[in-house]
């Protein structure tokens, strides 16, 4: 051993800033903070204003109105009646029937908003090039026809004596004035109207699915049908859930212009669904309080349904990342 000059091992220090301590966070002045934070709210302001003026304010007014009796004439005063409107509404026999009819309309619309669009969009996906655009255009065209104009044409087509529908089918049915067929006619015409939009939504949904999944499934040995059933449709389920939600919430609204022009809720009330009932209360019977109560009730009811459906849709959908 060599006993030379003494020494010692020193651990190499970890790198650290020479001046220990954290620089103080500079306080941003309130005015600066406001000025920086404000622009997003300014951009939102026009939309928010419209939303408040056209949606929330009427909603609040409806709520207030539902506790009053009023006949829509500006000169007559509103009389406060407490919950009488709600009591009348819930004991009215036509309410239950119209809820049932609304359910029928929704069930009848689902094929047009989910089933047919999926089939059409999948088939359109197999068509290539310009033919695809033409095909999609044809399906989407009815959406561009104004509902009332479409209704007029359909009234003519469904005419009991000279209508094209009866001539083609070889029948003599008075479609719009028979209790059994009026609802069916309304559903088919509304379906014809919205199917293009639904196809567009499904097409967009399909376009959003990474084509690698279908390619991988093909290489894995899945046939075309299997790829559709096992890969494409499950990945499309968020879109389908969205369409189903739209159908449940909006079917009654979509049918409204057609009912109003074609059947006015008849014959014998067989096409009077929730919305039409509400409208009849307000603008036929001039019972604004009752109509407002119905509006509030439906609003709450649809909120509950929408919440349930959204929950379900979230459970179903697998986010594709």
């Amino acid at each position: 051993m060599v006993s030379g000059a003494g020494g010692t091992f020193v651990e190499v220090a970890q790198p650290r800033p020479r001046e220990a301590g954290v620089a103080p966070a500079s306080r941003v002045r309130l005015w600066t903070r406001l000025r920086r934070g404000a622009p997003p709210y300014l951009y939102l302001a026009p939309a928010l204003t419209l939303l408040v003026v056209w949606t929330y304010q009427p909603l609040a007014q409806t709520f207030v109105l539902s506790f009053h009796s009023w006949n829509l004439v500006p000169s007559t005063p509103m009389v406060e009646v407490g919950t009488a409107n709600y009591e009348r509404l819930l004991t009215a026999p036509e309410l239950g029937a119209s809820v049932g009819r609304t359910a029928v309309v929704i069930a009848g619309m689902l094929p047009f908003t989910v089933l047919i669009p999926v089939v059409v969009a999948l088939l359109a996906g197999r068509v290539r090039g310009r033919a695809q655009a033409v095909y999609r255009g044809l399906v989407f065209a009815p959406m561009l026809v104004a509902p009332v104009a479409g209704a007029a044409v359909w009234q003519w087509l469904l005419d009991p004596s000279a209508g094209a529908v009866n001539r083609v089918l070889g029948t003599g049915v008075n479609w719009l004035n028979t209790t059994g067929t009026a609802q069916l006619a309304i559903i088919v015409i509304t379906g014809w109207h919205v199917v293009g939009f639904a196809v567009l939504v499904v097409t967009a949904g399909l376009a959003g699915i990474n084509p690698d999944y279908a390619a991988a499934a093909q290489v894995d040995g899945a046939s075309r049908g299997q790829v559709t059933r096992w890969v494409t449709l499950p990945l499309l389920s968020p879109t389908l859930a969205f369409l189903a939600l739209m159908t449940v919430l909006l079917s009654a609204q979509w049918t409204f212009p057609l009912i109003d022009t074609l059947t006015q809720g008849g014959p014998a009330g067989s096409t009077t669904n929730l919305y039409y009932l509400l409208w009849e209360y307000g603008f036929r019977s001039h019972d604004a309080g009752l109509a407002a109560a119905a509006g509030v009730l439906f609003f709450v009811g649809f909120i509950v349904v929408a919440a349930l459906l959204t929950r379900l849709a979230e459970r179903l959908s697998h986010h594709d990342d």
Partner: peptide
């Protein structure tokens, strides 16, 4: 009779 591993892996997310 070929198996493929994709760059994105393409694992079925659902």
């Amino acid at each position: 009779d070929l198996a493929m591993v994709f760059q994105s892996y393409a694992l079925y997310p659902h």
